[in-house]
């Protein structure tokens, strides 16, 4: 007779331990700062900024990455070589360095250019988030460019020949057959990379963007509490990463794998 999985002794022990740990954290640690920072709106602002920065740079990065991937997979040499170099450079240097180069570098350059100072965009260019979004997008695009280059190349040749045999124009082949199948092939990697992007968003706090990490830093500086804000932060990110992972799992299930049998 097989024992159902949920009565396994060690699993039950782990569950009890986890419950005890949650109880211990809830009762023994200090959480009195939570309502305070909820009421003054900092936590909500942090949540909003983290989600917005993630969403914008994911979208922009994926678009640019698709172009980079296409340029490397089917583009002529004068498009393929620069995007290759771009991907190598961006993937070979730390994101923090790129972020600081863009924020401090461009940030020190812009005030010296009169037409930028006098334009309407200047209000935004004095803040950190345009630079944060720009550098996250540029870096993410380099990673996605590599992923999509590989995916575009591994779409089965028969599919493209069939598309051609149907008399599709090159752009239609790309739109209806090549790109959709490449994205589907790349979905597991794209999902992993989206979580990597999410996990690199706290870096934007170093250029004074008020994201979740910035808020937890603020709490730690105000109250001298060491662990609790960090634990709360970690739980938040695990929660977000779970949502992203679920979204990608749902996307993967939407298309049955058999369609790639060719």
């Amino acid at each position: 007779m097989t024992v159902p999985r949920f009565v396994h002794l060690h699993r039950s022990a782990m569950m009890l331990l986890a419950l005890w740990l949650i109880y211990w954290c809830a009762t023994r640690l200090k959480w009195d700062w939570l309502p305070l920072y909820w009421h003054n709106g900092l936590i909500q602002a942090g949540l909003r900024n983290t989600v917005l920065i993630f969403a914008i740079s994911w979208t922009a990065g994926l678009l640019l990455g698709t172009l980079l991937g296409l340029a490397q997979a089917i583009g002529p040499i004068y498009a393929a070589a620069p995007s290759r170099v771009y991907c190598t450079i961006m993937r070979g240097t730390p994101l923090l360095l790129q972020l600081w180069l863009i924020y401090f570098g461009l940030g020190s350059l812009f005030p010296q250019i009169p037409w930028i100072r006098n334009s309407g965009a200047w209000v935004y260019l004095r803040e950190g988030w345009p630079f944060a979004v720009l550098s996250l997008s540029l870096c993410f695009a380099a990673y996605e460019g590599e992923v999509l280059r590989g995916a575009l190349r591994s779409v089965p040749k028969g599919q493209l020949e069939a598309a051609k045999a149907f008399g599709m124009s090159p752009s239609m082949q790309l739109r209806r057959v090549w790109l959709p199948q490449a994205f589907h092939l790349a979905l597991p990697t794209l999902g992993g990379d989206a979580i990597l992007l999410l996990k690199s968003t706290p870096l934007v706090a170093t250029v004074a963007v008020k994201d979740l990490f910035f808020v937890s830093d603020q709490v730690r500086q105000d109250t001298f509490i060491v662990y609790e804000p960090l634990i709360a932060l970690a739980v938040m990110y695990v929660f977000f990463a779970g949502i992203v992972a679920l979204c990608f799992r749902w996307l993967e299930r939407r298309v049955p794998n058999r369609s790639l049998g060719g």
């Binding site: 396994h8 060690h10 999410l198 706290p202 870096l203 779970g242």
Partner: peptide, 30 residues
């Protein structure tokens, strides 16, 4: 054994789900 496997899963899953910057801060004190 099953116990060791479960603990190791907790280790690898947690570490890979939390941003490196947050982990580094927590571990830096812990």
């Amino acid at each position: 054994g099953p116990l060791i496997r479960d603990w190791l899963s907790v280790y690898t899953t947690l570490i890979r789900a939390v941003p490196e910057l947050v982990l580094i801060l927590i571990l830096f004190y812990a």
